[in-house]
Design a protein around this nucleic acid. Sequence first.
DNA 1: TAATCCTTTGATCGATGTTC
DNA 2: GAACATCGATCAAAGGATTA
Length: 261
Amino acid sequence: MYSTTEKKRKRLSEEEIPSPEQKDFKQTKLTVPSSSLVKVPLLKQDHDIPGLYIAENFITKEQEIEMMKEIDKREWNSELTRRTQHYGYAYNYSSRNVNNSNGQSAPPIPEVFLHTLKNIKELASDLIGSVEFKQVIVNEYKGTNQGISKHVDQCLDFGPFIIIVSLGDDCVMKFHKLERVSEEELVKKSVKRKEVSPSVIVDKLLSRRSLVILSKDARYQYQHEIPKTKTFKVKNKVVKTRTHGYRRVSVTFRSILSDLK
DNA sequence: TAATCCTTTGATCGATGTTC
DNA sequence: GAACATCGATCAAAGGATTA
């Protein structure tokens, strides 16, 4: 039996005919990392959302511990309901922009993140090219009800790729498809975005130690959200139940558009 | 030029639906 | 029936766009 909400919601299924862009789906490791003796993660293009790439087990358990240790040594910002850390450029949630020239500059990006970034660039060089990622935000989601409301990452300051490394615990990210607008329109502050009707919502499991890259449609034509729910579901099946001990830390890398100009 | 409206990102709350 | 999940409405803040 389906709920009213579910009836009106169109969920993508494996059986759906892929778009021309999706037909080009390929499971590729875009570039071989320097060490050939370690298990090489695969960067897979997602079937459902153009521009979404996921690499499971992108980092090792040892790297995860090392990153967590580094994060826990640092000072947290408790301005939001979730705790955050900003590196490279601080993001101002009130003015919704990045700033490093008004006395609120963020600390430099820690070495352990730069090392991760180097591995990302090796794995995804064909996708991200020579784009420099100079801003890092660490978000911590603890307990049973912390999440982030649906949104599209700011388009005026941040570049075309959003890169997320998940640490600690798994989560589900929900993608809400928006009415399409051109990338030229996106940089106009006045552009109004609405979800497509009937709504298209795609659930994606982000497992710990995985890498996610949002580009193209995944970056600009979908809102993403981490629901503030006790259970995480994919296609209505519970894949994770949060307890009070739940802790997921995400490390998000962004490029700064003013750097690209 | 000043006032007003609109935008984005994120938070909160209430109503309604679902599950156990 | 209680607890939980989902959805939509509303609000905040600051800057940009529009209008008078």
